[in-house]
């Protein structure tokens, strides 16, 4: 058995620095890199990016104050992300975990993403252990609860969701150093959820709203997604995609960037079939990676009148 490293009781207290260069902190902590990546990888989302930059500045200053021995409190970091489907909430939560980790506010920086079913049990005595297992997994990182309002079902007074809520509230209050909770969901339902659960509202310091993407942003997202998969639009496919986006938005179940991802998956499927059926000889890399207009315009969205039926 290897002798385990004996734990230091306390790290020796270094003398408080007389001055702290925030610029330098910004760069050496890696926060600069996270924010730059966020800017580069995520299209649009200007208000979200602004809020994250502000939060990062606050945390950087808090950290500097703590190092100088000034009065400070562990800031409340629990957040809520509201916005329509596919607006990037889960994606941003992952970046947020990374950011908090680099700033030293969470020890590990992983993200555990759950919904009601992961927290709430089926019978008496089932919920508390389930919720605790998830909390234990998330310790040191971020617990992301998608569609958090499903935890609360007022129509059923014996709903086990209430038990999960109570455990969550307790840990959010007493173990603020151990994990950060991010609640996510659609704006109106989240508002109603906070109204009926003031305990949550008072424990959440940062509310970030995710706007829908504009048509132009969705087109840029489409191009970026294709690029990441080593595909590209030919000259006629780009306007076809723009047309698709306008039409798709008017259809039910429109889910912003996720609808784009799904549309591209289907376009790749059609491209593959087209190549398979029409190719006479060997294909080069360019042919294998080009999406053309017909791969997009074959979508049912073009056959439908706006506002009717789902897309296929």
């Amino acid at each position: 058995m290897p002798a385990p490293a004996l734990a230091e009781t306390e790290t020796p207290q270094a003398a408080a620095p007389a001055a702290i260069d925030l610029r330098e902190e910004f760069e050496t902590s890696g926060v600069k890199d996270v924010l730059a990546e966020l800017d580069r990888d995520l299209i649009g989302l200007a208000p979200v990016k602004r809020r994250i930059r502000e939060t990062a500045a606050l945390l950087l200053v808090e950290r500097a104050r703590r190092r100088m021995g000034l009065a400070h409190e562990t800031p409340t970091l629990h957040m809520s992300f509201t916005g329509n489907p596919g607006t990037g909430k889960t994606t941003v939560a992952l970046r947020m975990a990374d950011l908090l980790h680099r700033l030293g506010y969470i020890r590990k920086g992983h993200l555990v993403s759950v919904t009601r079913d992961d927290l709430v049990g089926q019978y008496i005595g089932h919920t508390a252990p389930k919720t605790k297992e998830i909390l234990k997994k998330a310790m040191g990182g971020v617990l992301f609860i998608d569609e958090a309002y499903y935890l609360y079902r007022p129509e059923n007074e014996r709903d086990y969701g209430q038990e999960a809520i109570e455990i969550l509230l307790q840990v959010m209050e007493n173990q603020r150093d151990d994990l950060v909770v991010i609640l996510a969901g659609y704006a109106q339902r989240m508002d109603r959820f906070f109204e009926s659960n003031p305990g949550f509202r008072s424990r959440i310091a940062h509310h970030i709203d995710f706007p829908d993407y504009s048509d132009d942003e969705l087109l840029r997202i489409a191009e970026q997604m294709l690029d990441q998969q080593n595909y590209l639009f030919d000259t006629k496919a780009t306007p076809a995609m723009a047309d698709y986006i306008t039409r798709r938005r008017a259809q039910p179940h429109f889910a912003n960037a996720r609808s784009i991802r799904n549309a591209l998956d289907r376009a790749r499927l059609r491209q593959a079939n087209r190549l398979f059926e029409s190719a006479k000889g060997p294909l080069d890399a360019k042919a294998l990676s080009t999406i053309s207009a017909e791969d997009i315009t074959a979508s049912r969205v073009f056959a439908l009148k706006p506002g009717k039926g789902a897309s296929k």
Partner: peptide
């Protein structure tokens, strides 16, 4: 036994 808890806070809670 706690197989998939990356942080010791989980054991401290138990």
């Amino acid at each position: 036994p706690m197989f998939d808890n990356p942080d010791a806070a989980a054991l401290m809670m138990e």
